[in-house]
Design a protein around this nucleic acid. Structure first.
Lengths: 250, 250
DNA sequence: TGTGAATGTAAATAACATTTACATAGCTAA
DNA sequence: TTAGCTATGTAAATGTTATTTACATTCACA
């Protein structure tokens, strides 16, 4: 349990000193390069400068290494989503969209984690810790959806927060999987994945009756019940934001 | 090029008679069971009753077999989506949703194809034929979106069809990936993946200003300009369909 | 300082992917 | 019909991987 010599002797000596971490890092790099499928246990060992059998002192098998990475990924993912949500500041809709962008950013900036988490074919539900980590990450979206649902404009039925969360999750995951990674990212799209997702979420929220031309509300006007336009207008003006969420219909 | 004896001698003899097809079928089964990652070329050969080297007479390597399956998958996918779209009958929105359900149905009923197409890590854009097949499938959604966009209600700006298509695709793919396959399917959801996607699409369409309580329009009332409520109401009544697309807010 | 627990290594096993040299069957042209 | 070319298979060899086992080296600490 004690890694007193981490820095001191990262490489030489009979004992590596920090093999577990070194293996995780090596694997992370390999997965980023060749995908979870291409990554090999032996390669990671080689990269860490140890024999092919050494990794088994730290991970039951290849899958456990992968799970560890996925787990760590979900934790970082949760952290980033939580940071993006920032407890709904400056206003719920803005923060909500920031969460969406954070989702895409994570997928783009941490391909190895994202791959291990969502594209490695790992049986997430077979590993309680992993499952829990995944759940915690999702709960950030869910909590945000909860807050958003609470803002449902008068006249519109209050949408189930869980459903909203699942919807948003599926949009973010769909965009990330299809357009924001790997070769799919090279498709010629009319807009960036970020813009695509933002428009998608905005249109969706509009469909629920939310006002979607976010704008920092007057001080202290939110969390309290209703944001600016929700209180005033008819909920959803058919025209919506000038030009719609997708910009000018030139 | 001549397979005169396909049926006659499917098994015995020095020559298999139909190895290529047999390998594809075997691989399909194996992928359905253990995923594209778990599938092995050797297993497929064994299953077809030939030596491990025989498959190389029909596929450059393991990846080419996988590509062939993905290709075939995209073709069947396109076929099913086209059938579901049914040229927009009985009305555009209904047909559009049917396409969404067909997407999920395909993911559920053809896990092997879906896996090879979207979860095998195949570099789709590296294979022109595969890329083209994928494009053709997407074009079904795109064409449907085109028709839908043309129905944009008066007062609402006409949304770019391509964007709509990408949005719908991402929703369907997101729901399929997250909730409609593998272990993720076992999550305790408040509704089925089908219902989830349907609600998502309906809310989205509502966000674009479309009337979403589909109902076969009066004969010949559609394609022509505007469907029932779009002509009458204010485009998007804040209340929308009674209870909203997700059912009664009990 | 002696010793058990932790961490590594080497060697062995079994499964794959892939290649190569050789065997056999099918088909076509003389 | 048959010689010979082509397509399709096989067996054996190579090189890599995952994983296990028996043995070696350190570490931590009583």
């Amino acid at each position: 349990m004690s890694w007193r010599k981490e820095e001191r002797r990262a490489e030489r000596g009979y004992h590596h000193g920090n093999l577990k971490e070194a293996l995780l890092q090596a694997a992370l790099g390999l997965i980023a390069e060749k995908g979870a499928a291409g990554f090999t246990f032996a390669d990671a060992a080689r990269m860490a400068g140890v024999s092919a059998a050494a990794p088994y002192r730290h991970f039951r098998d290849r899958d456990e290494l992968l799970s560890s990475i996925a787990q760590r990924g979900f934790e970082q993912f949760e952290s980033r989503l939580t940071g993006a949500w920032d407890d709904g500041r400056p206003d719920t809709v803005t923060a909500f969209e920031r969460v969406g962008r954070a989702y895409l950013a994570f997928a783009r900036e941490e391909p190895a984690f994202y791959n291990a988490m969502f594209e490695s074919g790992l049986p997430v539900d077979a590993n309680p810790a992993l499952q829990a980590a995944s759940e915690r990450a999702f709960n950030v979206i869910r909590a945000a959806a909860e807050r958003l649902a609470a803002l449902a404009p008068r006249g519109a039925p209050r949408p189930p927060a869980m459903m909203m969360a699942l919807h948003i999750w599926s949009m973010a995951h769909g965009v990330a999987s299809l357009f924001s990674r790997g070769d799919a990212a090279r498709r010629k799209l009319p807009m960036s994945p970020d813009e695509l997702l933002e428009a998608e979420v905005l249109i969706y929220l509009r469909g629920l009756g939310f006002p979607t031309d976010r704008r920092a509300p007057a001080k202290g006007a939110e969390p309290p019940p209703v944001p600016p336009e929700a209180a005033s207008g008819s909920g959803v003006p058919p025209g919506g934001t000038p030009g719609g969420p997708w910009g000018k219909p030139k």
